[in-house]
């Protein structure tokens, strides 16, 4: 063995070191963490899934999902998540919030394309959220309702964005705006530890609470 030239011995040692570290850091470590995670924090480790009344998972509390009809049009009886770029390229029935396609638009703030997208979204959301007795102008639409997130999977909307959608929800479901507002308030998370990040409203949890408390009787599919 020792007859081999030094560079070869060195690379053999390197290879053995690499294999040893692969076994320790690449196999034992992740498996041990997985074992403990699954034993002690199974719900979180599996992705914080939310179950409906029948015990079926309807999604993750951490990920947005689309509240749209079969054609991809937003359903007025549900709070709508932020615009999403997590879309399978070239797909016709993927409208966003696809966990297999995480990512953002990556358009610069001076991009004409982004400017056009923002303007279009402002117009669409203003029309969508305006109901008799309560009108929303394009300039009033909340900033997070016209911009896409980095992940394309942002589960939250800002409290301002939720407030803007309240009247539409109330009108569609035949309840008062105050009733919707109370539910929004109950589903608004503050900053972590009182100072980290920003407060947001989890859209999936809010919509499930809406369905539980004020079921929508119309047809949507």
């Amino acid at each position: 063995m020792n007859r081999l030239p030094a560079p070869i011995l060195r690379h053999l040692a390197a290879l053995r070191a690499l294999l040893v570290l692969t076994v320790i850091c690449g196999i034992a470590y992740p498996l041990l963490v997985t074992g403990i995670a699954q034993a002690a924090f199974k719900d979180k480790a599996d992705g914080s899934l939310i179950k409906d009344a029948k015990g079926q998972s309807v999604g993750s509390a951490l990920l947005c999902q689309e509240f749209v009809d079969a054609k991809g049009n937003p359903l007025p009886q549900y709070f709508q998540p932020r615009p999403s770029n997590a879309i399978l390229a070239g797909s016709t029935n993927d409208h966003g919030c696809d966990p297999a396609q995480s990512g953002g638009s990556n358009l610069g703030t001076n991009s004409d394309k982004l400017k056009q997208q923002v303007a279009d979204r402002q117009k669409t959301m203003a029309a969508f959220d305006s109901v008799p007795g309560h009108s929303v102008t394009p300039g009033q639409v909340a900033v997070d309702a016209v911009t896409a997130s980095a992940s394309g999977l942002d589960p939250d909307i800002s409290p301002l964005n939720a407030a803007q959608q309240e009247h539409r929800i109330a009108a569609t479901r035949g309840i008062t705006a105050a009733q919707v507002e109370a539910l929004v308030k109950a589903n608004t998370g503050g900053r972590d530890l009182g100072l980290l990040g920003e407060s947001g409203v989890n859209v999936l949890q809010l919509n499930l609470a809406l369905d539980a408390q004020y079921p929508y009787t119309g047809k949507y599919r």
Partner: peptide, 26 residues
């Protein structure tokens, strides 16, 4: 993990969303 980061080696799980769409979770 205790704060919500995932750690599972199960096959990606497909869920049916509230409005009947599908999401596959890696």
């Amino acid at each position: 993990v205790a704060s919500g980061v995932v750690q599972s080696l199960a096959d990606p799980h497909t869920v049916t969303t509230v409005t009947g769409g599908h999401q596959t979770l890696y």
